[in-house]
Each structure stands twice: as structure tokens, then as C-alpha cells.
């Protein structure tokens, strides 16, 4: 679906974790017209001081009920404005925006990796994959038990594995340390979280082919021309796809505010070429 301005209505708002909110909006156009990995750009009602919209990953989308959810942490006046919304309040959203995750049709086993709020970036892919009969393992990292995304908010079919920095629940350490146990099982991996986490995952993914001796997806007829950065094919063939974050202005590709550096030496717009990139499309060491 092409992007449009959609008037949505808040139907539920809950603080699911300290400072983290899950809000449901009635938005049939978005719930049925979006794909996992895409986002919306929501307008705050306080126009006196807040001149920018706020981007939110589409956390879940249910075409049956017409409801989408967003999941965010209160980090400033914009997100605080959203927490004050009550059922029945309307919010104008621009969406769906950006390019989605692309699952190779042959992939049966999907590894999802989320760090903290990065859960919002991969959450809907769990639903989408299970609906398509795929197996999903979700590795989740947080600072401690009090920040762990409730398993009750995930589909039963998802295998949910937790790592915490302080070891208060699950593996003690970084979520990236769990990945080697699953890299043989997984056909593809999809991640969202802090940039250092994604960079570490990209390094793991880069060495995977040598360690496992697996063929690169989609390259059975030999190595052809490299895929264009930002193309659907580049993402679909990648073992690791990452959902990136950047300060955003327009969210449609006009202002060039939200770029990251691509391995082709050209800045890539998170809002337009992304937010989902193949890990090898991102110049992790560029410092951008």
C-alpha cells in the first residue's frame, strides 16, 4: 500500500514496563496495508512546541480487528504527549512507511533478535512468520528482569529466549552471545536494537558462511552482479536483516535527515531505503 495520511483512534494504552508503553489504535488502512518492518509517522497534538512527527515501528497489525499497536519508551515531550492520550482520542498517522523485512520463501526457521525497545522493530515479523507456518525463535536482551518484554504479549508458537545484563533472568550477558547456538538452525535472522548490538550481529553473520559452509541464499546459479543497495532482492537474500534507527525529519525521503552510510559509499535514508537493510548494506565502521 502506498503511504497516506490516516486518522486513527486510540483504543487502548498500557504501561507494560517501567516507562514503556503499548498503545493500540484503530487504523484499518494500516493494519491491512502494512508489512512487518514498516513504520508510521505520527503527529502530536501539541503543535506549539513540537514541530516534528514521531516515527514508530508498527509493533503488531491485526487486519481482523483493524488495530495496530506501537511500543515506545518515554524519552521526551513527544512520547510523553502520547502517554496522555485516552481511548477515543485521535492521532493522525502517515504510513505505512519504509521497506519491510523480506523473508526468503525457502526459509523455515527464523531467528529474531531484539535489544530492549528493538522488540518493537521485529515484533510484527513474529506474527507474520507464524502465519506463514514458519518456526520462530526470538532472542531478547535487556538490562534486567524488570525490563523484559512480557512473554504473554508474544504468540505461543514463539520460542522466547532471554538474556539480561545482570543475569536476573535468563542468560547473563549480551543477547548477541546467544546467537552462535542458533546460527546453524536459522535460515535467516532479523534484528532490531542498539547500533552496537546490530554491528556485533553483522560481524557474526559475516563469518557464518565460512563456519557453516552454507551456500548464500539466492546464489545457486553462481555469483552474479551484486544487488542494488536498498533493493528487495538484497534484503531477501541476506542472512541477517536489520531494522535501523536514526533521528528523523520528514520520514518520506525528502529531507535527508535520517541517513546511515551504505557500503556503496552513498548515504541511505532510513525512512526510504530502510528502515530494514541487509546487514551487508550498512557501513558499520563508518561512524555515521
Amino acid at each position: 500500500m502506498t503511504m497516506r495520511l490516516v486518522r486513527t483512534e486510540l483504543v487502548d494504552s498500557r504501561e507494560i514496563l517501567p516507562g514503556q508503553w503499548l498503545q493500540s489504535f484503530l487504523a484499518p488502512e494500516l493494519s491491512s496495508g502494512s508489512r512487518a518492518g514498516q513504520f508510521v509517522h505520527a503527529r502530536t497534538g501539541d503543535l506549539s512546541g513540537l514541530v516534528l512527527r514521531r516515527p514508530f515501528s508498527i509493533n503488531t497489525a491485526d487486519p481482523a480487528t483493524g488495530v495496530i499497536t506501537i511500543h515506545f519508551r518515554t524519552i521526551g515531550r513527544g512520547t510523553e504527549w502520547f502517554t496522555r492520550l485516552r481511548p477515543g482520542d485521535t492521532v493522525e498517522m502517515l504510513g505505512p512507511l519504509g521497506r519491510p523485512f523480506e523473508v526468503d520463501p525457502r526459509s523455515r526457521h527464523l531467528l529474531l533478535i531484539a535489544g530492549g525497545l528493538g522488540m518493537a522493530g521485529v515484533r510484527s515479523l513474529a506474527d507474520e512468520a507464524i502465519n506463514h507456518g514458519r518456526q520462530v525463535t526470538l532472542l531478547f536482551g535487556a538490562a534486567s528482569a524488570r525490563d523484559v518484554y512480557p512473554s504473554s504479549l508474544l504468540p505461543d508458537e514463539v520460542e522466547y529466549v532471554i538474556a539480561t545484563d545482570d543475569g536476573s533472568v535468563g542468560h547473563k550477558g549480551f543477547v548477541t552471545e546467544l546467537v552462535p547456538d542458533y546460527e546453524g538452525w536459522a535460515d535467516q535472522a532479523f534484528a532490531c536494537g542498539p547500533a552496537p548490538m546490530l554491528a556485533a550481529l553483522a560481524r557474526i553473520a559475516e563469518g557464518r558462511r565460512e563456519r557453516l559452509g552454507v551456500a548464500k541464499l539466492g546464489r545457486k546459479r553462481g555469483v552474479g552482479k551484486p544487488d542494488v543497495v536498498g533493493s528487495t532482492a538484497a534484503r531477501r537474500k541476506a542472512f541477517l536483516q536489520v531494522s535501523m534507527e536514526q533521528n528523523m525529519g520528514c520520514a518520506v525521503g525528502a529531507c535527508l535527515g535520517c541517513v546511515i552510510m551504505g557500503t556503496n559509499g552513498v548515504p541511505q535514508r532510513v525512512c526510504r531505503e530502510g528502515p530494514v537493510f541487509a546487514a551487508e548494506e550498512v557501513a558499520w565502521e563508518s561512524g555515521w
Binding site: 506549539s48 525529519g249 535520517c258
Partner: peptide
């Protein structure tokens, strides 16, 4: 031109700063 390194935009009271 590839432009400036990021972050390039941020909201400020009643406005925004950009350095594309």
C-alpha cells in the same frame, strides 16, 4: 555530495536544527 555525518536533525522548542 554525501553530506554531513549523523545525527543530522533534532527537534528544539518550536523548531528544529538540521545539518544535512
Amino acid at each position: 555530495r554525501i553530506g554531513n555525518i549523523t545525527p543530522r536533525v533534532t527537534e528544539t522548542p518550536g523548531g528544529m536544527l538540521n545539518s544535512i
